[in-house]
Design a protein around this nucleic acid. Structure first.
Lengths: 144, 144
DNA sequence: ACGCAGTCGCTGCGTCACGCAGCAATTGCG
DNA sequence: CGCAATTGCTGCGTGACGCAGCGACTGCGT
C-alpha cells in the first residue's frame, strides 16, 4: 500500500511538471521565471542573490531573469536604503493574481474530487501533502 | 479545509519541480529529457512523434532530444517493421532503474511520513493522489 | 496499377536562456 | 583609512528549442 502511494506520487509529478510548463509557455516565460514568481509570491520580496539560490541559478542568470520579469511587469526593483549594493525584488500583486488565476480551472477539478472526501479524510490529505512538501524541501536542502 | 488542501498542492509543486530540476542537472540532461524518460518508463515505448506530444516539443526538437538520450545510453531506437517511416523509442531498463534510484532517498522520507498513517488513511491518500493525477492530465488535454 | 496527398522523422538556421569570468560599487572589518 | 568580501550587472561561448524545409514512406482514390 505504501509503495502504491509512492508510485502515485511519481505518476502525479509528470503531468504537474508538464502543466506548469504549459502555463509558462502561455505566459511567454521560462518555467524558471514562473518558479521565481512562485517563490516571491509565497515567501515575499527577496534580493536577486536570494532569488538565484532559490531557483538554482547563478547571479548573472538571475540578473537577466529579473530583467525579463521587470520588462514583463511581473516584478519591480526596489533599492535597499540600508545597503546601496542590494536590490529588493517585489512581485506585482496584480500579476500574481493574474498568474494564480490560470490555476482556477485545475483547482476546480480538484475541488470536485475533494467533494468526495469528508472532513476527516480531507484532514488526512492535508496532513500528508504538508509533510510531503516539507520532506521534499528537506531533500533539496540536503542535496544542495 | 478544501482551500487549504489546494494551497498545499500549490506549495508542494515548487519543491517537486525544483527537485526534478536538480536530478536532471545531476544526470547532465535537460528536465525535458528527464520527463521523456518518465513517459517512456511509465507508458512504455513510443514513437518520436508521440513522445514529442507528451513533452510538448516539436518533432525537430524531439529528434535532437532522442539523439541526446541515445548518445547517453538511456534509450535506443528500434525501427518499426510494419511502417518503415516510424521508429520506436525504447527505454534502457538499467538506465531507468539507475534514474529511479535517485528517488530512493526522497522516497525513504515519504515512507517515514506514511508510517504515521494507518491502512485506511493511506487508502484515502492513494485515492486522492490517483484522482489528482487524472485531473491534471485532463486539464492538460483540454488546454492542448 | 499508379499517382498524389498526407505523415513521419530528420537537418540548417536563428533565437534565447544559461554558466562562466570579470567588472564597478558598496560595505564593514582591521 | 585602506582592503578584503559581498552584491548585482555585463561580454562571451554553449546548447536547447522552434520554424521551415527535406527525403522516405504509406495508403487512399481513381
Amino acid at each position: 500500500m505504501t509503495e502504491e502511494v509512492l508510485r502515485a506520487i511519481a505518476r502525479w509529478q509528470i503531468p504537474v511538471i508538464q502543466f506548469n510548463g504549459m502555463l509558462a509557455e502561455q505566459l511567454g516565460m521560462t518555467w524558471t521565471d514562473l518558479q521565481a514568481l512562485y517563490v516571491l509570491a509565497n515567501s515575499g520580496p527577496a534580493s536577486p542573490g536570494e532569488l538565484a539560490r532559490r531557483v538554482n541559478l547563478t547571479s548573472g542568470s538571475a540578473s537577466r531573469m529579473i530583467e525579463r520579469l521587470v520588462q514583463a511587469g511581473f516584478v519591480r526593483r526596489v533599492p535597499d536604503p540600508h545597503d546601496r549594493r542590494k536590490v529588493v525584488i517585489e512581485p506585482d500583486p496584480d500579476a500574481v493574481r493574474r498568474v494564480g488565476g490560470l490555476y482556477d480551472s485545475l483547482n476546480e477539478r480538484h475541488r470536485a474530487d475533494l467533494a468526495g472526501f469528508d472532513e476527516t479524510e480531507q484532514a488526512v490529505i492535508l496532513r500528508f501533502l504538508s509533510s510531503a512538501a516539507e520532506r521534499t524541501e528537506e531533500e533539496i536542502r540536503q542535496r544542495a
